[in-house]
Design a protein around this nucleic acid. Structure first.
Length: 656
DNA sequence: AGCACGCCGACT
DNA sequence: GTCGGCGTGCTC
């Protein structure tokens, strides 16, 4: 007897082994084994078993050493799921497989609990007609049928309540439900609510950085088909569900749902579409700012949209929204209106949040008179100032590479004097301290969150408790607003990111604005101030009206005319090398190979600083579904020249 | 990814 | 003389 084994290494292939007679009846696909591999004995997984040897000739087979599992840890959807992930996002099958199953041989299944106690508590307040309608529709679906649904509506329309009720019904029917959240730390309250309704022992809170003993317990229970509600970040979607009846994705449009840092890469949205289909489960997406991909699915009829329109009782407020200049009489950074509002907020002892909407633009060049940014004459992107020994002090376009001199004329006010954008949150804090010397000011950005003792954590706490007067943060602060006691929010640098290299910039910007609007609309006196030098750079009318679908329609039309996702699919190839010549040569080789297989090729585009020791650039290929498999497979199996490393990202979200 | 083999620099 | 740097190659 023979079998094929995949190992927990980044190799895109399986290996043939002989099965000793004593182990023959224990060997089956999906079972983990230990086997001699290279010079060591390691854990692997059997992917197929056969009576005949199909190993290539001239290779002496080694024998399986031991069988770890009595039964497969994962259900029958393991290999289809692995193949789906391979086809969609690429990467070595070894890595994909062992993202779904614990690689350690000592990690064994625990026995299911002998009994489970399920008593679901549901609050008895009156539901809105949107909620009633959604519940009625979803309850009418036949069991074990796949039904994808988008709960689409602004904040405080009761989407999450609807999800909780449906999850409760699944649990009461002894089924398994999965609810994903973008960030587990931000979901504290939601988890507490779920535990109160479903019982602490039936709610499994799953994320990648949890204790191994807990992981083992939850993994086993899920694999054993124990009824439960799993609340997790995106990685929970990879759990070995036995009886998944409902999967729900809260805040569907959130960027956290794309895994691009570590392999295997995947996007939760597409992954759950596949898994829910395999399981015959109901799949809910809920969002006030759904992604363009999702909205296109709605348009195509691939997903049923259930609109949520009525606010839940006590939340019918509309925040005041005001768009002001970027600078005022008294300050270069803060408009007069914002200063007045901040002063009022301080009097009322309420917390304000100021957001700097800049990322990767610490060196933009702006007009000293009106605050507009110098833009590329070729493509209109915002220029960055760069001082290199070879080219001296100049402005460079990060999108198309076009370079310009420091002599610029402001496109709006024709002023000729410009200045580099310096500093970040600290500069704003210093500026605020001048006007409000007695206010408690805190910074909240990735810098202050790096160390445990930093201000960032204090600021996060202050958002909830109201223990600060003004918090100055980057965009990550806007994501931490759930349940915050913030009555005034301001975006200081509105249009800065819109013309960056990321084609999703305006979608993300819109999502941030609508998110802020949503949070503030829960308060009787919520105010949102947007400081923009160029008020035409973004269409604010849908925001003022609170109509995300109008904003999305414009965005979708743009994507279609410029051929960007969701109308094409992208593959980003990041090429890294120490020497520039080597890098260029390899980039050219890849472009020559892949360009004929793609609809269009963009780049190469430099990323990060060219002064780094490691030079990096990327190519972007546009494809359609028909060419996708072939192009991804070709790129995935491409062996780069020596001293060059590649990173292939399918459906990329990161362009910096 | 590991792990070993292999070929050049600065130590007792 | 050799200890150890990491560049290269292989895993049934």
């Amino acid at each position: 007897m023979y079998c094929k084994v995949v190992f927990d290494v980044p190799l895109d292939r399986d290996f043939d082994y002989a099965v000793p007679v004593a182990l023959a009846d224990k060997i089956m696909p999906g079972v983990r084994v230990t086997a001699p591999f290279g010079r060591v004995l390691t854990g692997g997984m059997v992917v197929s078993v056969s009576e005949v040897c199909t190993a290539p000739e001239g290779i002496k087979l080694k024998e399986i050493a031991s069988v770890v599992d009595k039964r497969p840890l994962f259900g029958s959807d393991l290999f289809p799921l692995m193949r789906f992930m391979k086809a969609n996002w690429g990467g070595p099958i070894g890595q994909i497989l062992f993202a779904l199953v614990p690689p350690q041989p000592y990690f064994k299944l625990e026995n299911p609990p002998s009994s489970v106690h399920i008593a679901v508590q549901t609050p008895s307040f009156k539901l809105t007609s949107s909620q009633e309608n959604a519940l009625k529709t979803i309850r009418s679906f036949a069991a074990y049928e796949f039904h994808p649904v988008l709960l689409n509506g602004p904040a405080y329309t009761g989407k999450t309540e609807t999800v909780l009720r449906l999850a409760g019904e699944v649990l009461a029917g002894y089924g398994q439900a999965l609810i994903t959240v973008p960030d587990i730390a931000a979901a504290r309250q939601f988890i507490a609510e779920a535990e109160a309704r479903f019982g602490t022992e039936n709610v499994y809170c799953w994320h990648s950085r949890m204790l191994l003993s807990k992981k083992k317990k939850y993994f086993s229970a899920v694999s054993n088909g124990v009824p439960c509600v799993v609340i997790s970040t995106r990685s929970g979607a990879l759990l070995p569900f036995k009886n998944l009846r409902l999967a729900a994705v809260l805040d569907e449009g959130d960027e956290h749902y794309k895994q691009e840092e570590n392999k295997p890469y995947y996007h939760l949205r597409d992954l759950l579409m596949f898994r829910a289909q395999m399981h015959g489960a109901v799949l809910l997406f809920s969002s006030q700012t759904p992604s363009m991909e999702m909205l296109k699915w709605v348009e195509e009829g691939k997903i049923l949209q259930l609109p949520f329109t009525q606010p839940v009782p006590g939340h019918h407020f509309n925040p005041q929204i005001k768009i002001t200049n970027k600078k005022g009489e008294r300050s270069k950074y803060l408009s007069d209106f914002l200063l007045a509002q901040l002063a009022e907020n301080l009097n009322r002892k309420e917390t304000a949040l100021l957001i700097l909407n800049r990322r990767g633009y610490s060196n933009a060049y702006y007009c000293l008179n009106c605050g507009s940014y110098a833009k590329c004459k070729k493509c209109g992107a915002i220029l960055a100032r760069e001082n290199t020994p070879e080219h001296g002090d100049r402005l460079i376009c990060k999108k198309c590479g076009h370079a310009e001199s420091l002599q610029q004329e402001c496109p709006l006010c024709h002023n000729l004097i410009f200045k580099s954008r310096g500093g970040g949150t600290q500069k704003i804090v210093t500026e605020l301290a001048k006007f409000f010397p007695k206010a408690r000011l805190l910074r909240l950005d990735s810098d202050t969150l790096k160390t445990k003792s930093g201000q960032g954590f204090e600021a996060l706490g202050a958002l909830k408790s109201g223990q600060a007067d003004i918090i100055v943060g980057t965009r990550l602060a806007s994501g931490a607003l759930r349940g915050a006691k913030v009555t005034l929010a301001a975006v200081l640098d509105a249009e800065l990111e819109l013309d960056g290299p990321d084609f999703r910039a305006s979608e993300k910007y819109g999502q941030m604005l609508f998110d802020l609007r949503g949070h503030l609309s829960g308060l009787a006196d919520g105010r949102l101030i947007i400081q923009a030098a160029d008020k035409e750079a973004y269409d604010y009318a849908p925001l003022l009206a609170g109509d995300y679908s109008a904003a999305a329609e414009t965005e979708l039309a743009l994507r279609e005319s410029f051929l960007y996702p969701p109308f094409v699919r992208l593959i980003k190839v990041l090429i890294k090398a120490k020497e520039t010549d080597l890098l260029h040569a390899e980039t050219a080789r890849i472009k020559r190979m892949a360009a004929p297989l793609a609809l269009d090729t963009l780049g190469p585009v430099w990323c990060a600083k060219k002064t780094d020791t490691l030079k990096k650039q990327y190519l972007l290929f546009k494809t359609d579904d028909r060419r996708w498999l072939d192009l991804l497979a070709k790129l995935d199996s491409w062996t780069p020249a020596k001293k060059v490393t590649l990173k292939i990202a399918a459906d990329p979200y990161d362009f910096y």
